[in-house]
Amino acid sequence: MAVSELNKRIPTTLVWLLLLTMPYWLPKVGGYVELGTQVVVLGLAAMSLNFLLGYTGVLSFGHAAYFGLGAYGAAMTIRYLVPSTGLSLIVGTLVGTIAAAIIGPMIVHLRGVYFAMVTIAFGQVFYFIAFRWSSVTGGDDGLTGWTRLPLDLGLVTVDIQNNPIAFLYLALAMFALAVGVMAWLLRSPFGRTLIAIRENERRARFLGVPVDQHIWISWIISCCFVSLAGALYALLNNFVDPRALYWTQSGDFVIMAVLGGMRSFWGPLIGAAIYVVLRDYLSSLTENWMSFIGLFFVLVVLFFPRGILGMVRRKVLS
């Protein structure tokens, strides 16, 4: 028991040490702070997707919808309602979560490819709204004319507007909250019912788990945190455009989760890091960077079907 407890704590400690010290070591290895923030934000999105994909066994191919709703929710709050970073995060997260809660009951009885297809379809609906409704959303050009604002915490004001390191730590704080809640849920009786559904849906059903209801709740939790990631993404870029809602963005989240390893808690974060760093590096060399990421993805899926972290874990155990 003691050994397995230790085995679980080491990766978690390591991940947090690396994340919290990013401003010190990132520049030394040729990175920059915003790149680290991108990893944190997209990693949060991929880990949220993985709550549904890796721990409930349900593949959503439409998580960009809620990512984008979070992003537009945050951006439009600042642009049209109140100049408050805190409020924009809350509104963005709520918009995505409420949309997911409403759409959920229409789709949670579907399985496999049917579920994936319907999530894409709903995602595209939001994409076209953002694309067409130019007067409000800025259409294809994106929503500009706003920027994130210093974070007013009552006693102190943190300048996340001009200080990228301060914004990184805001993103990390949100990341910690979301990831902490997910880790906690997965160790609870509710979390175990999700794993039961992933392992054997029929068995779960006949053990008295109303499977559709539990998938619905898992879907809402997953979409809630992906919306939070979307809101952070808008604030990071001071910009949002309809591509944040497009189905290929959903595909990117799936790629990150599978690349890193969807059966491991931190896997999708590793996947996001690889994805973001490769994109940053390759896109400065070639316009066809996506084909290299695609090739890399194919190689990983072929040779390490449990993802990068799945492979590392297997090596450590054996």
Binding site: W184, L185, S188, P189, F190, G191, R192, T193, I195, A196, E199, N200, R203, A204, L207, G208, V209, H214, I217
Partner: peptide
Amino acid sequence: FPELSVRENLRIPVEVAAGLRLRP
């Protein structure tokens, strides 16, 4: 549940029977 331990396999129905299935 083939990829879970014996203990975990039994724990899930025990928790459901105790009315704890939604407990976080």
